[in-house]
Design a binder for these strands. Structure first.
Length: 839
RNA sequence: GCCGAAGUGGCGGAAUUGGCAGACGCGCUAGCUUCAGGUGCUAGUGUUCGCAAGGAUGUGGGGGUUCGAAUCCCCCCUUCGGCACCA
């Protein structure tokens, strides 16, 4: 017995170099029907990766390698989501320029990825902070601008009065500035938006076509888009020609309107109160509400407040005078910013009416009894369905039936119409930050807002800037950048100094991989149509809404522009769970990160990969246990030792194939398990990505192989049956190594070579199984009495029911238990059990 | 509040057209090996009663359907995630 040591460090280096040299993961533009685009979400270069990140890349690598063995041409690219706030914060904190910092981090992380043995086509690597990349991000902005899908309007930003700077949402913690704990205020700035709301219906409808997406992600997106059906109703402003439209999902309650609420931002307010006795108090109220943070204003717990404007509107269905209020719970961003308030049937309106002593008018009563609700006795709004009352010609109608009829009535009378509202807001892409792609816009005094011509792209991000935070974008201070000339008239003009949200960068990177080196276009349409949509996208659930929705939106824009022939970017989506340590998500700030380099040093990358996959089903969160790693290491050693201990035999004894007629009972059983294992691993990968159970089944097989091979070396190798046994052993080990190859590629390549094959194992086809050999000759059957196991019998698997019954009746234990009892019923489940029901 | 996912040994987890609960692994216990061990090997390991054979009990809780329920139905509890004054 000559055992080589399992030197994982040497082996892993050897095969990483081999794959790089042989170009296992390099693909050119040509691809046939057998293409497979496997994409992992590109990382933000934060500095170092922890084992939690590893899960994403390891899962992706398993899929890529499995598909390669199944004969697919696999595209597996990688890149860097390299713009973003942390790099800028690091610059403020320790003066390192974001570009240097980012570059260093990418270098470090690239080494880490390579150490894991995860395979990518590095020739296609992209980094979103490089001009070659963000030139095309800017080009996308121009395309949207041309289509009227990019526009500018005033919008609130988080403002820290103490730091005198704009804060990103993630810098606001519980309403306080994360740096100085000052309370954050809202401030209005002119900012750029993408008109994603135009696509709301399509983004919602097309979710139905995404069969390969997790239900919960689709549900989250549907909730985010938030479609609601109802009506828009015009209320006439008393003593004027003006109308104030409002949206409602409950047109059936129109007869119960007792006041109307306007959002404090509603543009009509100022002229309504201009010069009236209410002006001062209303303006004060608006100022106060606007000073509140978003959280304060929009959480359910906040007390409803309002103020009367002194004006009235007219309810178009019954001409009642309805007092017009301004209230903090009406939102300008939803519907029309005006709410027809029905306190009897809406809880918010109810609370408001109680507080300000406004009338409550019941227009729906519960179905099934004649008792009328009494508004004086109500302590909450009646929001359920019921029957119309006090509703003129609609009285007596069930309210659900009344809704369409009432809307028809509005339309006939010209006072309102059917309307659909979405919760989805337009995408605010302006960031008052340095480390992002500059928005390619120039402001000219005579020509106005002018897009930078395509030929002038990229608008380069200047290198020399001051990072001290102050009121505006850092780019504002760079005169050479700001001062420009108008592309239209050639006069002096100023550049836009905001940069784009990093979600813009990441909304199209999967297209750039197709043409990463092309400096004439963002991507080649023909090639993109060949490779996309992405066959498998893998990433964290934290991107379930924004990143995926934005990518879908951009894809639809390109589709409409006929740049691509598909309108959904990701055919299949897999969201892996987080790795938890000490009860919390692994993160630098919590100090619970496990450094993958230490694990790799001690046990090797394959052990780390195996443990990461074995820990739990990949979609579920999993607790990392440092001690658990040893189990995976032991398994790989056991596999290594078993194979290397037979190395000399493999060389000497020719592979004469497998001869079933020479099988002993044990050999037949082992052969059977080899086939069961192939079937199990294949199905686990294909059907449910249950890598943990796939690995467990190979562990079982190896346990069996070790028992089988224990005394094989001492046998007489002149005997045909012994040689046949040896070849079954060889087959079992080759199979184990093959089905493990996607999980632990380095050791698999090495053992494949030791088993006498030429590299690479990834050019060997995925094993197939022999269904016929899986059926067992004999099965153990459970014998129950009244559902409790009383005995077990080993019987031929094709036994007749009569033979089985007589065997059961001969069984000693069964007879003991049957004494003095009568069999009422016998249930036989073939190959499983017999249940005797007795009294 | 609404929507969704989940609850199984000391731990991670297996078992779903209803059919032996706890595969596989960690940990633990005992023994062997070792100068030594965060090594390797062997055996055992849900709980409980019993010297044992064997019995009882057991998948968050309570009901139900069934010969038989972790699995199906009803009610409840807990945890996690998303949305949350969206008219």
């Amino acid at each position: 017995m000559s055992n080589k040591e399992y030197n994982f460090t040497e082996i892993e280096k050897k095969w990483q170099d081999f794959w790089e040299g042989s170009g296992l993961f390099r693909v050119d533009e040509d691809c046939d029907k057998n293409k497979f685009y496997c994409l992992v979400m590109f990382p933000y270069p934060s500095g170092t990766l922890h084992v939690g990140h590893g899960r994403n890349y390891i899962i992706g690598d398993v899929v890529s390698r499995y598909k390669i063995m199944k004969g697919f041409r696999v595209l597996s690219p990688i890149g860097w989501d390299a713009f973003g706030l942390p790099a800028e914060n690091a610059a403020i904190a320790n003066g390192i320029h974001p570009s240097i910092n980012t570059e260093n981090n990418i270098k470090k992380m690239k080494v880490q990825l390579e150490r894991w043995g995860v395979g990518y086509d590095w020739d296609r690597e992209v980094a979103s902070c490089e001009p070659d990349y963000y030139k095309w991000t800017q080009w996308i902005f121009l395309k949207l601008f041309e289509q009227n899908l990019a526009y500018k309007k005033k919008a609130a930003v988080n403002w820290c009065p103490s730091c005198a700077t704009v804060l990103a949402n993630e810098q606001v913690v519980n309403d306080l500035c994360e740096r100085c704990d000052t309370k954050v205020k809202q401030r209005d700035l002119e900012q750029w938006f993408f008109k994603i709301s135009n696509f709301a219906q399509r983004l919602l409808d097309d979710l139905k076509t995404l069969d390969g997406w997790p239900e919960r992600v689709k549900t989250m997106q549907a909730n985010w888009i938030g479609r609601s059906e109802g009506a828009k109703i015009n209320f006439k402003l008393e003593e004027t020609d003006k109308t104030i439209p409002c949206f409602t999902t409950r047109p059936d309650t129109i007869f119960g309107v007792t006041f109307m609420s306007l959002a404090p931002e509603h543009p009509v307010i100022r002229e309504l109160i201009n010069g009236t006795e209410h002006e001062k108090s209303v303006l004060e109220f608006i100022d106060r509400v606007r000073g509140q943070s978003t959280i304060e204003r929009t959480s359910e717990g906040t007390e409803k407040e309002g103020i009367f404007t002194g004006r009235y509107v007219i309810n178009p269905v019954n001409s009642e005078r309805v007092p017009l209020w301004v209230s903090n719970y009406a939102l300008m961003g939803y519907g029309t910013g005006a709410v027809m308030a029905v306190p009897a049937h809406d809880q918010r309106d109810f609370e408001f009416a109680k507080k300000y002593n406004l009338p409550i008018k019941i227009v729906i009563r519960p179905t099934g009894n004649d008792t009328m609700l009494n508004h004086e006795e109500m302590d909450e709004a009646y929001v359920e369905d019921g029957v119309q009352v006090n509703s003129d010609r609609f009285d007596g109608m069930p309210n659900r039936e009344a809704i369409p009829k009432i809307i028809n009535f509005f339309e006939e009378k010209g006072i309102g119409e059917r309307n659909i509202n979405f919760r989805l807001r337009d995408w605010l892409i302006s960031r008052q930050r340095y480390w992002g792609a500059p928005i390619p816009i120039i402001y000219c005094e005579s020509c106005g807002t002018v897009p930078v011509p395509e030929k002038d792209l990229p608008v380069l991000l200047p290198e020399k800037v001051e990072f001290k935070p102050h009121g505006k974008s850092p780019l504002d201070d760079v005169d050479e950048f700001v001062n420009s000339t108008c592309p239209k008239c050639g006069g002096s003009a100023k550049r836009e100094t905001d940069t784009m949200d990093t979600f813009v960068d990441s909304s199209w990177y999967y297209l750039r991989y197709i043409s990463s080196k092309d400096n004439t276009q963002a991507f080649d349409s023909e090639d993109a149509n060949k490779w996309l949509p992405v066959d498998q996208y893998i990433g964290g659930i934290e991107h379930a809404i924004l990143h995926l929705l934005y990518s879908r939106f951009i894809t639809k824009v390109f589709y409409d522009l006929k740049l691509i022939n598909f309108d959904e970017p990701f055919k299949n989506l897999f969201t892996q769970g987080m790795i938890i340590k000490d009860g919390a998500k692994m993160s630098k700030s919590k100090g619970n990160v496990v450094n993958p380099d230490l694990i790799t040093e001690k046990y090797g990358a394959d052990t780390q990969r195996l443990y990461t996959l074995f820990i739990a089903p990949p979609q579920r969160d999993a607790e990392w246990n440092d001690r658990g790693v040893i189990g995976s290491y032991r398994f790989l050693n056991k596999l290594w030792n078993t194979i290397t201990s037979f190395e000399e035999y493999f060389k000497k004894i020719p592979d004469a194939g497998i001869k079933p007629d020479l099988f002993s009972k044990e050999t037949k059983e082992l052969y059977r398990y080899i086939n069961i294992t192939i079937k199990k691993v294949t199905e686990d990968i294909e059907k449910s990505w249950s890598f943990n159970t796939a690995i467990a089944s190979v562990m079982e097989l190896l346990n069996m192989v070790v028992d089988f091979s224990a005394d094989l070396r001492d046998k007489d190798f002149n005997e045909e049956a012994v040689i046949n046994d040896f070849n079954v052993l060889r087959h079992s080990l080759e199979t184990s190594v093959k089905v493990l190859a996607p999980f632990v590629p380095h050791i698999s390549e090495e053992l494949w070579e030791i088993l006498g094959h030429n590299p690479s194992i990834f050019s060997a086809p995925w094993p197939t199984y022999d269904e016929g050999s899986i059926a067992a000759d004999q099965v153990e059957m459970v014998i129950q009495i009244n559902g409790k196991v009383r005995s077990k019998l080993v019987v031929p698997s094709e036994i007749t029911e009569d033979d089985l019954k007589s065997l059961v009746m001969d069984d000693k234990k069964i007879n003991e238990n049957l004494e003095g009892k009568k069999i009422v019923k016998t249930i036989v489940v073939p190959k499983k059990l017999v249940n005797l029901v007795v009294r």
